[in-house]
Write a protein that binds this DNA or RNA. Structure first.
Ligand SMILES: [Zn+2]
Ligand SMILES: [Zn+2]
Ligand SMILES: [Zn+2]
Ligand SMILES: [Zn+2]
Lengths: 159, 159
DNA sequence: GCCAAGATGTAATAACATATCAATGCGAGG
DNA sequence: CCTCGCATTGATATGTTATTACATCTTGGC
């Protein structure tokens, strides 16, 4: 059992599922799902939380996969590029996508205390931001939405 | 003349205005608007774009105000804390608030090419993100919204 | 097999941020 | 006036995150 999106669940098999989905997707698109890329995604799925690049690198180093920063940054770039992983700007950290099969605009709830992260989705309509962009002629390609606050656990522990 | 919010305008006097507004606000709240803090805000107002901490520090160093990182980070912390400056997570950079008199939830349009930044406002209603948060018991305290794309200038230059 | 594109190995460095502790200034209460 | 407490500053060191640069190797199309 592990904490995901702030509730408990058994995800022993969803790692395998996500990995094989990623594998298929790469095959379709003629992308190379190399060992380092695969292992980084697997690590993020296993831990099921946001991890810093160097935290991942430590694991790779221990396993003899690579010990230099570019090893992990290249893998992360690939995974982020193709939507298997999201970067949490607020934390300078990375987390496996919670619904990699759907095309989506990710949004995150980030606990400022324990750093737990839950992935939600925002509406595609860009509201006042889209309107502001339109007025000025700005062309939006991507939107970062990250809410910061207290997760249920930490809020409860405040007592 | 300078680029602000992606259109031209003369803001020779708005620096002075913003500074004196900040001064009043600090006086009201019994905050110390010290020389370093004042100068950092002034620099951000002058340049009128997002600046990295070390870029600001270089200026402070040249002026003999201070050359060590804590000098600029302390000033930035203060200015961000009190709403005179916003941090752009996507860029690890800082920019003077475009409407410091109003209480607001800032949102940004960030050009991926030239790094120009425009500040907009988002609705306070948190839409589906708020709903998702409510369901899981997450308590939102702050929301980061940063749109990435191309500003009119860069889009034009694409040719 | 040959070539070009993509991926990896490796070293060095850049960019961003914080920890720690001593020293200083300054107002409120005695 | 004194001094206690608190915010600020000074100074040094260190921690953390990310990129550049260049050599080498692999892969897949031809
Ligand atoms: Zn996702
Ligand atoms: Zn928490
Ligand atoms: Zn603002
Ligand atoms: Zn631009």
């Amino acid at each position: 059992m592990a904490t995901i999106g702030f509730h408990q669940h058994d995800h022993s098999h969803c790692i395998a599922t996500a990995l094989s989905q990623a594998e298929s997707k790469c095959a379709e698109r003629k992308l190379q799902f190399t060992p380092a890329r695969r292992r980084v995604l697997e690590i993020l799925l296993e831990k099921h939380r946001a991890m810093g690049a160097y935290e991942i690198l430590d694991i790779l180093a221990a396993e003899g996969i690579g010990s230099q920063p570019p090893v992990v940054y290249r893998a992360l770039d690939f995974l982020v590029q193709h939507g298997f992983v999201h970067r949490i700007e607020r934390l300078n950290a990375y987390t496996a996508c919670a619904h990699p099969t759907r095309d989506h605009v990710p949004a995150f709830l980030v606990c400022r205390q324990c750093k737990a992260v839950a992935e939600a989705e925002t509406e595609l309509t860009q509201g006042r931001l889209g309107i502001a962009a339109g007025k000025t002629g700005f062309h939006i390609e991507r939107i970062v939405v990250e809410a910061e606050g207290l997760c249920p656990d930490c809020a409860g522990a405040q007592a």
